[in-house]
Measured scan of single mutants.
Amino acid sequence: MTEYKLVVVGAGGVGKSALTIQLIQNHFVDEYDPTIEDSYRKQVVIDGETCLLDILDTAGQEEYSAMRDQYMRTGEGFLCVFAINNTKSFEDIHHYREQIKRVKDSEDVPMVLVGNKCDLPSRTVDTKQAQDLARSYGIPFIETSAKTRQGVDDAFYTLVREIRKHKEKMSKDGKKKKKKSKTKCVIM
């Protein structure tokens, strides 16, 4: 069974824990209790493949930012979460993405942009803004509501699919490099 290491990042209060708990335990946590770091595991079937999701729910508070490099190193894919009623959390996505790329030393890291709290009427981040940002990053965008469960499975499952595509691409690139290195030079 394939294991996928997913990391949920975003500013404090955007609903990272609520999304994760909704996926794992099928219930909505409405009281806000700032996370330092929590880890969850769940076995699911995605596109006919049974897999184990190892999900790291991270601290959004700035005082825990020193811990970010460590979990970013171990993560295979990242859910970059903002709240649709919090423009600052949307603007912060850029910083999370840049930090992930720096730590992973790669421009090509599996990510999904997630606009959470889409059940709320007080939207300050337009869907088109988020779609445009995701398009500019070359990553999928999904709106979710941890409260109603809308888009929750889709967000995590899409990230797994992005990781699969990335692994497939990397193995193809690896095979191309191996083929090239088999060419021999004969000096007579």
Rank of each mutant, 00 (worst) to 15 (best):
T2M: 15
T2A: 13
E3A: 13
E3M: 15
E3S: 10
E3W: 06
Y4S: 13
Y4H: 14
K5N: 08
K5P: 08
V9S: 08
V9F: 14
V9Q: 04
V9W: 02
G10I: 02
A11P: 08
A11W: 10
A11C: 13
G13I: 07
V14H: 14
G15K: 01
G15H: 01
G15M: 01
K16Q: 00
A18E: 00
L19Q: 14
T20Q: 01
T20K: 00
I21S: 08
L23Q: 15
I24P: 00
Q25R: 04
Q25E: 05
H27S: 10
F28K: 00
V29Q: 11
D30I: 07
D33Q: 02
D33L: 01
P34V: 02
T35Q: 00
I36L: 02
I36P: 00
I36K: 00
D38S: 00
D38E: 00
D38P: 01
S39F: 09
Y40G: 00
R41I: 03
R41S: 03
R41K: 04
K42I: 08
K42R: 13
V45L: 11
V45W: 06
I46D: 14
I46T: 10
D47K: 14
G48D: 09
G48S: 10
E49G: 08
E49F: 05
T50Q: 15
T50Y: 13
C51N: 07
C51W: 12
C51L: 13
C51V: 12
L52D: 09
L53P: 08
D54N: 14
D54S: 14
L56E: 01
L56F: 01
D57S: 00
T58I: 02
T58C: 02
T58E: 05
A59Y: 00
A59S: 13
Q61D: 15
Q61I: 04
E62K: 06
E62H: 06
E63K: 07
Y64H: 03
A66N: 10
M67S: 03
M67A: 03
R68G: 06
R68W: 01
D69G: 09
D69L: 06
Q70P: 09
Q70D: 04
Y71Q: 11
M72L: 03
M72K: 08
M72N: 07
R73T: 11
R73M: 11
R73Y: 13
R73H: 14
R73F: 13
R73D: 10
T74F: 04
G75S: 05
G75R: 04
E76K: 03
G77L: 09
G77I: 07
G77A: 13
L79A: 08
L79N: 02
F82I: 12
F82Y: 08
A83P: 15
A83R: 09
N85S: 06
N85I: 14
N86C: 09
N86H: 03
K88G: 07
K88L: 14
F90C: 03
D92Y: 04
H95D: 14
E98D: 05
E98T: 02
Q99G: 03
I100T: 06
K101H: 07
V103R: 11
K104Q: 14
D105K: 15
S106G: 11
D108I: 06
P110H: 03
P110I: 03
V112D: 01
V112M: 11
V112K: 02
L113Q: 03
L113S: 03
L113A: 08
L113D: 01
V114S: 02
G115T: 13
G115I: 13
G115R: 06
N116F: 00
K117R: 12
S122R: 05
S122V: 08
R123P: 08
R123L: 09
T124D: 11
T124F: 08
T124K: 10
T124E: 12
V125S: 10
T127D: 10
T127P: 06
K128F: 07
A130C: 12
A130R: 13
A130T: 09
Q131D: 06
Q131L: 07
D132Q: 05
L133W: 13
A134S: 05
S136W: 10
Y137T: 11
Y137V: 12
I139M: 11
I139V: 08
F141Y: 14
F141G: 13
I142L: 06
S145W: 04
S145F: 07
V152D: 07
V152C: 05
V152S: 10
D153H: 07
D153C: 05
D154F: 06
D154G: 06
A155D: 02
A155N: 02
A155L: 05
F156T: 09
T158A: 13
L159K: 02
V160K: 14
R161D: 06
E162R: 09
R164W: 05
R164H: 09
R164E: 08
H166K: 10
H166P: 04
H166R: 06
H166S: 07
K167P: 10
K169A: 02
M170F: 11
K172V: 04
K175Q: 15
K175E: 13
K176C: 07
K177A: 14
K178F: 10
K178C: 08
T183S: 04
T183V: 13
K184W: 05
C185G: 13
V186F: 06
V186A: 11
I187L: 11
I187H: 03
I187V: 12
I187G: 14
M188R: 13
M188K: 10
M188E: 15
